[in-house]
Computed example of a mutant assay.
Amino acid sequence: MTLYKAGGEDKHFAELFVGVHGGDWPRAKDHWTRVGQHVGDRTSELEGLSQRKAKAMIEDLARTVCLDMAAVGACWACGRDTVNR
């Protein structure tokens, strides 16, 4: 995950989200992507934004969803069940 390499809050998020997936980086990346796609497909506020702004908003919203769920040991893309913690 390039987030991990970015350091700071991005690295913290990556570590927490990957940790929920038992250290399985490819699975965590896939689930992060799926959450982003879900958010992007269902967020009407993206209409009218430039592609760059829409992408940034999707990433922010997806990160918020994933971070909140990872904090309690869950992943939306894993079926909302509590997973490895």
Rank of each mutant, 00 (worst) to 15 (best):
L61Y: 09
E47I: 15
V39K: 04
G79M: 04
G40K: 03
S50C: 10
G8W: 04
E59F: 11
G73Y: 06
R42N: 15
V39H: 03
V39I: 14
F17L: 04
S50R: 14
W25K: 14
M57N: 02
K5Q: 15
L49C: 03
C75L: 07
E45A: 08
K5D: 08
K53T: 04
A70C: 04
T43E: 04
G19S: 01
E9A: 14
D81N: 14
W25Q: 15
D60R: 10
V83D: 03
L46I: 05
D68A: 12
E9K: 15
F13H: 09
F17G: 00
V65W: 05
R34N: 10
A74Q: 08
N84M: 14
G48M: 05
T64N: 09
V18I: 12
R27E: 07
I58M: 04
W76S: 12
C75R: 05
H21K: 01
V18W: 11
A56N: 03
G79C: 07
S44R: 13
C78Y: 07
L61C: 06
F17D: 00
C78N: 03
A6G: 02
D10L: 08
A62V: 02
V18K: 05
L67C: 05
L16H: 07
W25C: 13
E45H: 08
T43A: 06
A6M: 13
T33L: 11
R52K: 11
D60Y: 06
T82S: 11
S50M: 06
G73I: 02
Y4Q: 10
T2E: 11
D60E: 14
A70K: 01
S44P: 01
R63K: 13
Q37K: 15
T33H: 13
D30T: 08
W25M: 15
K53R: 11
A74D: 02
T64M: 11
R34C: 04
V35C: 07
T64Y: 08
R85G: 10
D30V: 08
E59Q: 11
G36R: 06
C66G: 00
G48W: 08
L46Y: 05
D10P: 02
Q37E: 15
G79R: 08
E47H: 14
W25S: 11
R63E: 00
V83H: 14
K11F: 04
W25F: 15
